[in-house]
């Protein structure tokens, strides 16, 4: 089996995540879809690290995880704060700004 299969899996996961962002309405689930995209990228990075024979890819994946963790904190805080005023976590309800 070629490691390229991992890349294909990664591409598919990334796409699934991207489509999830488009179709889900719960802000938290949308955000989880973005996390899925980041995970897909990590899989690519790890696979490329192996193909290239350098550890850099793994280090990058590690950084992605750290960044994602920080992003999650900020994102959830923002979602919490809007939930407090709106009592809704649907992204479709945040629709005052348009046109």
């Amino acid at each position: 089996m070629s490691p390229t299969n991992y890349l294909l899996l990664s591409g598919l996961l990334f796409t699934v995540g991207a489509v999830g962002v488009l179709v889900r309405r719960n802000a938290i689930v949308v955000f989880m879809c973005i996390e899925l995209m980041l995970n897909a990228v990590n899989l690519s990075l790890v696979t490329f690290a192996r193909i290239n024979g350098t550890l850099d890819g793994q280090v990058m994946a590690f950084f992605v995880m750290v960044v994602a963790a920080a992003e999650v904190v900020v994102g959830l805080a923002i979602i919490m704060s809007i939930f407090r005023t709106r009592r809704s976590s649907s992204v479709d309800d945040a629709n005052l700004l348009k046109y």
């Binding site: 990334f14 991207a18 973005i34 690519s44 193909i51 290239n52």
Partner: peptide
């Protein structure tokens, strides 16, 4: 409005940075 702006900016920003990251991975490859 302000919170809505924050949510929109955040979600789309995170979405965009996922694309950036995937590009980074491909270029690393």
């Amino acid at each position: 409005l302000s919170q809505e702006a924050a949510v929109k900016y955040f979600l789309l920003g995170a979405f965009a940075s996922a694309f950036f990251l995937y590009g980074l991975a491909l270029l690393y490859g």
